[in-house]
Design a protein around this nucleic acid. Structure first.
Lengths: 222, 222, 222, 222
DNA sequence: GATGAATGAGGGTTCATTCAT
DNA sequence: GATGAATGAACCCTCATTCAT
């Protein structure tokens, strides 16, 4: 086991948020921006609230990000990066392809449940027809690698005779994402219209079960 | 019982056209509001643009609707009402249940395609956690009757031995809606991230085909 | 002699600045803007000070003029219009051409003395290379009619044998304007550099006398 | 006589280049400031642009000059110093006094043409009623020596019988400066209002010719 | 019933300037 | 001596909304 080289105090003192620490300040602002934009959308988000939550000043938002829209873009990139980070730990190479597929679904849906800010930011960005995303320099790094992962799984499942051949991994991914995203994103209006609380754990679990079943039937043989 | 005071001829003869003018102005404002809110969301929508598009004045917005939020609520109710109106013409009583199911899917999806304002307004309202919808007096009238329609279809299909038993119509409805709504609502970010144009007709048609197939497999026997 | 038709009280009550009086409010703002821009230039002028001086609100500046630059343009047009208004009363048709010429000089110079805001606004506008003036819709109406007046005078003087022939009225006008404008516009730095107070009445009068003499010699025969 | 304390070799060898670097940086900043203030006036001038043009940092502006206003004062002193420097090479001791006078005019006017920053900075300073100039420690050194030069010329010309007696050199200087300064400073508004381009070379030359003629007639006998 | 004038509040942004290293 | 991070104070402008006629 490797011993970590002792870091200098200067770089990593745990004495709370230091002044004059570029990266730390920037990160606090970005984190606060994600929360604010997720809660209020782009135009109703308030610079002052972001600054306060970041224990910084409104002036600093502009110092680090230049404008509200640029900050929004950074927040958007940040939630995509977090998703990619989470996806990196995902492995689908177990024997049982059907089990692996369900695990994949659950992974995606759990991520959505645990990261409502992801859904909210994406909805906001879609209202703007992805204007900010298209300006992003990191666009290339945003492409999901899990579609490839899913492709491998489909192939293995097909060879094992558990999955039918010819399933498009991108389509499958969209189907899985749809089932999680739509439900969570629209549960407020749906709850009002259907007159039942879609946020209740039992409603959620029922939805995941049925969704998993649908996905299974979509790829399983016969 | 109160007797209505007799109206003078003068008033009576004028009330018709006047009322019609009133209603026409109100309707123009409402239509303009739907477009504006769909395009820009609630807080970025501009009263001035709504007034101009409605060939009316900003003052009239307040005259007829009281406030911006009330106008938004009216717009929201209006798009729900339009959906209900469209659904009213839907019949699923043909012999072939599988064909009827696909027709239903296509109906829902086509409606989404042809009414992007519906999706946009719902997204906006979900950002506000359905705050305006919950305040709506018409909530009851908003509940979709098509879930019932779908229930009937499922039953008939099950009796005919084409559908498996135990399918929940609400779940099925959600699944169908998901497949249409998510794709259309998120196509801008998805197009950017997947680096391909999801708005292209061939992409759309492929998506509808696969979605219909998935829905079919979800309910069909074995 | 014509009797003025009695104006309705409504149009011309002398009861101080009325509320809801479009033209009056607009005029007060414009007047305040002229003063402020003359004192501080464009960018150092403060909307709040203009509003206060106009006994109105900052909001109204934008209601009537749209932006600070537009307000500046209006102020600029206004000082030009005032000059033209003053020039309208000018007559140069007396017998003695030399006396008429001197009267003309004195008129121009007195106007500059009595309207420092004219000089200041023009200096500011020249800093911006006449950007606002070129955008003015009234540019045509701004052309000075006095050059024509001066042309007539020169011709009459030449025919009377008092003026030499071939004097260009535009050049003459520039020369006269220069002698007044430069002295007044630059008296602050000149006073500091020459270590004497050019604003003192005797300095001024000496300057006007010498300037008039120079202009006279410029056009007089031999 | 005081003996200089012997400097250590180390200090002596470094102080030269160092001091030169210091002076060079200071000079670059000052030069950049002159350009910026001339272009934009005092309040619209941007520290960041000055720093960039000087290939230095905004921080250094404050390091060397203390504040924006101090920097402006330094810039002002600098343009005056440049004028004095140019004037130092001027000689008016030729035989022909009329020719010398015209040469003087041309010198002044050429200087204005070639140094628009001089005119612009002076206009700006006059907007502030010479506030910065009055605070200048170098005020004494700013007084133009050319008025004296002109005085000598007038005297010689008068003795030679070419100039009339009693011409005040300061008045003459003002007249000459006026004719150059006003035209150049106000050519933008004048061009707009007169609808002809006063910056065109032929317009300029015509103006110089007539101005020289006017000055000549002002001092020449009969 | 309809209109134009008026308004208070606050939002994003920028600027000159100063810590802290 | 020089640098990058930080800051407080405003400034222009806009928005939803309400008087007053």
């Amino acid at each position: 086991m490797r011993t970590e080289p002792a870091r200098s105090n200067r770089m990593r003192s745990e004495s709370g948020p230091r002044r004059r620490d570029r990266e730390a300040t920037r990160a606090r602002i970005l984190g606060a921006a994600v929360i604010e934009f997720a809660r209020f959308g782009l135009s109703e988000a308030r610079g002052e609230r972001i600054a306060r939550r970041a224990r910084s000043s409104e002036r600093m938002l502009y110092y680090y990000f230049g404008s509200k829209e640029e900050l929004f873009r950074a927040a958007l990139e940040s939630v995509y990066a977090s998703l990619r980070e989470a996806e990196r730990s995902l492995r689908l190479d177990e024997e049982d392809s059907l089990a692996a597929l369900e695990r994949f679904c659950r992974f995606v849906w759990r991520y959505y449940v645990e990261h409502p800010e992801f859904i909210s930011l994406l909805n906001t960005e879609n209202l703007y027809k992805a204007r900010h995303l298209r300006r992003s320099a990191q666009l290339g790094e945003l492409v999901s690698p899990v579609v490839g992962l899913l492709g491998g799984l489909i192939e293995r499942g097909a060879q094992a005779g558990v999955f039918r051949p010819g399933v498009d991994p991108a389509q499958l991914y969209l189907a899985i994402a749809s089932q999680g995203y739509f439900y969570l994103s629209n549960r407020h209006t749906l709850s009002a219209v259907l007159a039942r609380d879609l946020s209740a754990p039992e409603s959620l679990e029922a939805h995941w079960r049925e969704s998993a079943e649908m996905i299974r039937r979509y790829v399983a043989v016969t």
